[in-house]
Design a protein around this nucleic acid. Sequence first.
DNA 1: TTACTGATAATAGTAATGCTATCATATTTA
DNA 2: TAAATATGATAGCATTACTATTATCAGTAA
Lengths: 225, 225
Amino acid sequence: MELQLQIKMNEKLFLRNPEQTELGKKIILHSIFLIHKNGFEAFTFKKLADDIGTTEASIYRYFENKHRLLIYITAWYWNWLEYQVTVHTKNITDPALKLKRVIRLLATTVEDDIKTSYVNENILHQIIIAEGTKAYLTKQVTENNKDQLFKPYKDLCAKISSVILEYNPEYKFPKSLSSTIIEMAHFQNFFMYNLPSLTDFGNTKDESKIISFLEDLVFSSIKKL
Amino acid sequence: MELQLQIKMNEKLFLRNPEQTELGKKIILHSIFLIHKNGFEAFTFKKLADDIGTTEASIYRYFENKHRLLIYITAWYWNWLEYQVTVHTKNITDPALKLKRVIRLLATTVEDDIKTSYVNENILHQIIIAEGTKAYLTKQVTENNKDQLFKPYKDLCAKISSVILEYNPEYKFPKSLSSTIIEMAHFQNFFMYNLPSLTDFGNTKDESKIISFLEDLVFSSIKKL
DNA sequence: TTACTGATAATAGTAATGCTATCATATTTA
DNA sequence: TAAATATGATAGCATTACTATTATCAGTAA
């Protein structure tokens, strides 16, 4: 028996469920490669169609537009990451250890997960670093949020926030600290490789230093006195 | 005598210096309003031209494309903010007090600065919150960085970083902490108003709570033992 | 006064983008 | 076997993101 991880996605993310057809899976797979290669701005459904060997019109049957596809991809990622967090903290009771695991999962380039064969999580991670915030930094954020499109992100944030409160129930800003470490795990990575003077690890390009920074940030903030 | 604050901008940011002509100033002024109103994605030079009452072609003489204009606007903002930081920390010797001032300047909606008549800093601040990261989250970031287009941002980061080291010369991550508080001053604001469950101040919409969070974050991190 | 310069307006044009619509055909499913 | 569904092929269209050319007008230097 082959174990297949199926992530249940919000129906509003798509017009037709891409996980249920061959073309749908190709759309996800190829869009991840193309966005990674040329960036989201240069990405178009026409180029994606040519890459897949299908037509624009066919892709529009799955997604309203490229921004919706980006939201879908990011939502998929956050769902997957929350699942990773759940798995990797399952049998840990010490909240400090849990938090360290979480930080590592957030900040580390992941190995490809064979359970989701048609998605390359490593490349996906890099996309989320460079393009992830563009999913919500728009004028439609409130409307999209009403459709629950950002629920996976918010769920992950809530989960991390609860681990923080496990460690120190008195800490005043668990959610803001969560969103801070999520975003900073990505921004510090982007800065390290692209604008190194905004970080303290520019010359080393050593991702473990980002982990050290985040651990230091988190634990000094939530330390009980 | 009227005091006029002229911010010296990098020549590579534009094709023709917009500060030196009436049309140029109108381009900046109206683009800030339009980007604020409709978001950067919906912003085009055609719409800007119609709004100003000029032609697309005229605007293209000042800026290569809308992304360059965004970089210009963000660079202007970071220049201006660094100037604000300099002014407001000038006679303060206590680095802790300095840092608090800096955090307040980063996180607070600014009052309109009469010294720069043709720019509305308050609206500009909101643009930077929602669109600022799009200036560098692109495939051209390295190239743009070589042209020094992000220097104002990096200068501000370096300045804050030096205040951090003044407070605690032993602290290991002054630059990463600086970029973290700069970005988080904005992201927590965006989240508070648009995705409130990612913060701890969603119901209050109280910007001073962002300041409390950032102060807590910074000072617990850099505290000497 | 004339001639030159620089800035802008007016107009035109082009390739690419971001869609929508229609119809034919292949495949699945009832 | 008929009906429903998915895809492909093709067309079309308004907008976007530019580039190029020419004309006009204001300021200034000779």
